[in-house]
Design a protein around this nucleic acid. Structure first.
Length: 446
RNA sequence: GGCCCGGUGGCAGAGUGGUUAUGCAGAGGACUGCAAAUCCUUGUACAUCGGUUCGAUUCCGGUCCGGGCCUCCA
């Protein structure tokens, strides 16, 4: 039983060996200024699966996923709505947590916020100033990139190559164009905290470094995040933490998930192709969204569209048919082939294949259920699953039952034209009828 | 311009130097008043051009195409 994961740092598949008795995992969480979209969900789902596996393999796992509740995007939103940033942050934190719960993402062990950790941010910046890795310029504290010689190791970029392609004007007070802000001054009307450098707020990258230090220590086992965070966010985290901790590495393994796109194009606000989780949940269950997400390997790009949701829904429909309403499952270890697929860099498509194979043997429900637990699917009974779908569709069950009994009457009288008419009417609303010796059942098509 | 990642059957999507991925959809059959569901049967795909090889979808190189990062971004 050996977990292999692709490490961005080495760009190789590596065998996972924990540093100590406690496996420490950190995932970059959301900036809470808006409704989460499916892109936000992917790293959370990937992290969730990884942690489920780690908990099977190791006795103690601590998983930290932060909430970034101070950011200029939050400030902007608060100003627009004429409320404090706490109101905005709290609102969207709750929505995020609720969305994740719907997707069967288990909560992390610790979910720290930046505003609760300003003191540790200030502490780390002070350390970086002492060690001459940072400097003050026009009320800003900046990290001096040339002071860290391994800068670019994660993203495999060379410094001069980056500057060549830079598309943004460099602030004149920077000693080096690559230098980035650790602390910035706040104006009267902006949120801020007192610090040795005046009233201000943290820059973008320092919060993760300092929260990792606070909650997990100097070096962790695995750091997670979306592909886009490799540069500059994670590169900068590494620089800060390394320098603050006398060259100790921040994380042994780095995992990055691929992007979700729409029509082969990245989701972005300017294109207007952002898909919010809440909007999908108006039509599909969270479990359906989760399965659709797991249908591709986490490192691969995933093109999001209705087809993959329809397919995932159908798959769940079939699987719940086998699971049924029996709640008395025996606890069994996960099937070997299935688990091996997950151990191979979380190969969920391969694992799903094994799951479908297991589902063919109807006397094997215990194993099927055990496997599904690792993927975070099939957590309900079939009845609960159907109830959930009925709720989403907001169906008038009494009306449906009435139509079905009308149809049964017509069938008994051999008025098949009339019976078929009723069935077709129901089909328009997505209701499929199934006649059986014990009566007529109905289900929702998607 | 620099750096990355891809191109697999109708669709989604793994994997492999020579043997069925899997799922969804489709087709045929059984069943049914007709359907649905279910069961059975069915599908020979790996961008392109070279190279290595007894043999390449799989390895190497070129080409074309697509996507991402280099700026806030999951």
């Amino acid at each position: 039983m050996n977990l292999n994961i692709f490490n961005t740092l080495s760009k190789k598949l590596e065998s996972f060996k924990p540093l100590g008795d406690t496996v420490k995992v950190y995932g970059c969480g959301p900036t809470v200024y808006n409704h989460p979209h499916i892109g936000n969900a992917r790293p959370a789902v990937v992290g969730d699966i990884l942690v489920r596996i780690l908990r099977n393999l190791f006795k103690k796992v601590v998983y930290v996923r932060n909430i970034t509740d101070i950011d200029d995007k939050i400030n902007k939103k608060a100003k627009e709505e004429n409320v404090t940033i706490e109101v905005i942050a709290l609102k969207y934190t709750k929505i995020y947590q609720e969305n994740m719960r719907t997707l069967n993402v288990l909560p992390p062990d610790i979910e720290p916020t930046v505003t609760q950790n300003i003191h540790s941010v200030i502490k780390m910046i002070s350390t970086l100033l002492e060690k001459k890795n940072a400097y003050e310029a026009e009320n800003h504290i900046l990290f001096h990139v040339p002071s860290f010689k391994n800068y670019g190791d994660l993203s495999k970029r060379k410094k001069d190559e980056m500057i060549e392609g830079a598309r943004v004007e460099v602030a004149p007070y920077k000693k080096d164009p690559m230098d980035f802000v650790l602390w910035k001054p706040s104006k009267e009307d902006q949120v801020g905290w007192e610090s040795p450098w005046g009233r201000g707020r943290p820059g973008w990258h320092i919060e993760c470094s300092s929260m990792i230090e606070t909650y997990l220590g100097e070096t962790i086992d695995i750091h997670l995040g979306g592909n886009d965070l490799i540069f500059p966010h994670h590169e900068n985290e590494i620089a800060q933490s390394n320098c603050a901790h006398n060259g100790k590495p921040l994380s042994k393994y780095w995992l990055h998930n691929g992007f979700i796109s729409m029509d082969k194009e990245k989701m972005s606000k300017s294109v207007g192709n952002i898909i919010l989780i809440n909007d999908i949940l108006k039509k599909y269950t969270g479990e359906t969204v989760r399965l659709a997400m797991l249908s591709a390997h986490y490192k691969q790009p995933l093109n999001w569209n209705e087809k993959i949701l329809i397919q995932a829904n159908k798959n769940l429909e079939n699987l719940y048919d086998i699971i049924g309403d029996d709640k008395n499952y025996k606890f069994v270890p996960p099937p070997k082939k299935f688990f091996n697929a997950l151990l191979n860099d979380l190969n969920t498509p391969e694992a799903l294949k094994e799951l479908y194979e297991l589902s063919k043997d109807k006397n094997n429900k215990d194993q099927l259920k055990s496997a599904a637990n690792y993927l975070g699917i099939l957590q309900l009974t079939q009845t609960e699953w159907i109830e959930q779908k009925k709720k989403i569709k907001n169906l008038d069950e009494k009306k449906i039952d009435k139509l079905i009994s009308d149809r049964d009457k017509a069938r008994k009288e051999k008025k098949f034209d009339e019976a078929d008419k009723i069935r077709n009417e129901l089909a328009i609303d997505g209701i499929i009828l199934e006649d059986s010796p014990t009566g007529t059942k109905w289900r929702i098509s998607n």
